[in-house]
């Protein structure tokens, strides 16, 4: 499903070259729940950007569903993100002063779906993410943190993506809400979704089936969680 071969990413800032990721190779199978863990500056965020098709590697290949992502242009990357990847961010990143439904529909904008189909898909997705129906027409800024993250998850799910990429999804939430959100991810995984979780908290990584530890741009450990 996901195959990374010797991925390198180098940032050039003036004359200084920084190797954020220097030669990472791994594969993730369909239906897996993988946590990528590491301290800040370890290169896990860069890796996540590459996995999420938000950025392309400097060298190496990244195959998603057999497609070489590193060769795509900006528009092709956009289409890939829209169809195959669902994002859940630490800061939720919802459109402010916009209804929950409208937020969830955002990835369907400018696509060939009718307004009715979008509405149905968004409602289904929200129910799937465990959002109460009474809040569908609320404005995004009237929600609690946990609710916002559920809306974000529903948005990530709307196109039924191949992978869900969660970047520190519990970073802005309290312990109790974090637990609920992580259980939601586990539930989604049980239903067959492939989930990649980026975090720096070992206890959050415990919800995953497999933990890849990244340090200084390389994989340090890659272990299966034993339950």
């Amino acid at each position: 499903m996901i195959e990374c071969n010797n991925i390198c990413k180098t940032y050039v800032n003036g004359d200084v070259e920084t190797n954020a990721v220097s030669g990472i190779t791994f594969r993730i199978d369909k239906g897996d729940f993988v946590a990528i863990i590491g301290p800040s500056g370890s290169g896990k965020s860069t890796l996540m950007h590459i996995l999420g098709a938000l950025d392309t590697p400097t060298s190496g290949t990244y195959l998603l569903d057999g497609q070489d992502v590193s060769k795509l242009d900006d528009d092709q990357l956009s289409d890939l993100r829209r169809n195959k990847i669902g994002f859940v961010f630490q800061a939720f990143n919802l459109l402010p002063r916009t209804t929950v439904l409208r937020n969830v529909m955002l990835p369907l904008l400018y696509s060939d779906t009718t307004e009715k189909e979008r509405d149905q898909k968004a409602r289904k997705s929200l129910e799937y993410a465990g959002m109460e129906e009474g809040k569908f027409m609320n404005l995004s800024n009237q929600l609690s943190g946990g609710q916002m993250q559920r809306v974000a998850i529903a948005r990530a799910l709307i196109n039924d993506p191949a992978i869900i990429l969660a970047d520190e999804p519990t970073g802005n939430l309290d312990t109790k809400t974090s637990r609920i959100v992580m259980e939601t991810f586990q539930e989604l995984n049980r239903r067959g979704h492939t989930i990649i979780l980026i975090t720096h908290e070992p206890e959050v990584a415990l919800y995953a089936n497999r933990v890849i530890t990244v340090r200084d741009g390389v994989i340090e450990k890659d272990v299966k969680n034993v339950r």
């Binding site: 999420g52 938000l54 900006d74 528009d75 956009s78 289409d79 890939l80 993100r81 829209r82 169809n83 990847i85 994002f87 990143n93 459109l95 955002l106 990835p107 904008l109 400018y110 948005r155 196109n159």
Partner: peptide, 16 residues
């Protein structure tokens, strides 16, 4: 700018 970033991240083409 953040909103633009979000729109791009969820897969909206920059032309739109």
């Amino acid at each position: 700018t953040r909103e633009i970033g979000l729109r791009k991240a969820v897969g909206i083409r920059k032309a739109y």
